[in-house]
């Protein structure tokens, strides 16, 4: 087990290094002058001042040097300075992390609960038309853009009925609308994957066995199909969390909330490349961490995975399958 964890950690480190490299290539190695972009075409800046800014941010060094120096600093936890915010990138990100984590966490909980409930109800509803009606919801959750859903909720629940505040970040009431907006696509994805898994499981022979033992239909689904169907849904969690982070960009704009999403739009608009790179790395790190957690959790849910690496070695030759 320890070796497995070590191997996975090495892999995670590799992905982070590669994400750093990819973002460096995209942001710094592509033709284009970040300083010129930063100061803008109309700004009245002399060549000397531009050169001074370049050397201040180390942009006048050869690309390879910039890359290696940046990588060395990144391993020490220093992602450089944000040109716009005039503070270290890590500080800017750390300040915005809390509100987004709170929002994404709430959205993940609500989205998962809604998705699971929807999928189960759609499989177990007594009448066919009820199932059909319930199954139209998940594709909707995936297709409706979050800016539309957010504005719709604002229009109805905030402006018309004044149930929740329209913007800001104070108290749980201000969290409801953005969390719902962010949860909808997550719920849609979970419900679709889980419903497909349940439908698949419903066709499996072990479900006939389960019914033949005397399980009622709902009980057979809850006790036998759900756990089998949850496995593919679980592997989606990494993508889902990444999607929530990306969703925060739109949602925090719609509801005028502080957080990583707002920081991202500000960084992109100001072409604050160091900050953008830092945010990309945060996204990749989150994805890697969640996937690592899922991979470590997976064997607990699927015994077929747990025993595969435990296969007894020593026998050099096995003649039977």
């Amino acid at each position: 087990m320890a070796r497995y964890v070590l191997a996975r950690l090495t892999q995670a480190a590799f992905v982070l290094w590669a994400a750093y490299t990819v973002s460096f290539v995209v942001l710094f190695a592509l033709p284009g002058d970040p300083v010129a972009l930063m100061v803008g075409p109309d700004a009245n800046v002399t060549e000397e001042q531009m050169a001074a800014i370049r050397s201040q941010y180390g942009l006048d060094r050869p690309l390879a040097v910039q890359y290696l120096a940046g990588l060395a600093e990144a391993t020490r936890g220093d992602l450089g300075d944000s040109m716009q915010a005039r503070q270290p990138v890590t500080t800017a990100i750390a300040e915005s992390f809390g509100p987004t984590a709170k929002l994404a966490g709430a959205a993940l909980v609500v989205g998962t609960a809604a998705g699971v409930l929807l999928a189960l109800l759609a499989m177990l509803a007594p009448r066919p038309w009820q199932r059909t009606a319930l199954l139209t919801l998940p594709p909707l959750g995936v297709a409706v853009p979050s800016f539309l859903l957010g504005l719709l909720l604002l229009h109805l629940l905030s402006f018309r009925w004044q149930l929740f505040p329209a913007s800001g970040d104070d108290g749980w009431r201000s969290l409801v609308l953005p969390a719902l907006t962010m949860a909808a696509p997550a719920a849609g994805v979970i419900a679709q994957v889980l419903a497909a898994g349940l439908r698949q499981a419903g066709r499996e022979d072990y479900m006939v066995t389960a019914r033949a033992k005397g399980n009622s239909r709902p009980r057979a689904y809850a006790r036998h199909a759900l756990r089998n169907a949850a496995l593919p849904a679980l592997t989606m969690t990494g993508l889902l969390v990444g999607g929530l982070l990306a969703g925060s960009v739109v949602v925090e704009t719609v509801f005028a909330r502080p957080g990583l999403g707002r920081l991202t739009t500000m960084a992109v608009s100001a072409q604050d490349l160091a900050l953008v790179q830092g945010l990309v790395l945060v996204g990749a790190a989150l994805f890697v961490l969640v996937n690592l957690a899922v991979d470590l959790l997976y064997p607990l849910l699927d015994p077929r995975v747990a025993t595969a690496p435990r296969r007894r070695a020593g026998v050099r030759q096995i003649t039977a399958l």
Partner: peptide, 8 residues
């Protein structure tokens, strides 16, 4: 794939 596509 590890970078959320909107972020990329």
């Amino acid at each position: 794939l590890s970078i959320p596509s909107l972020l990329l």
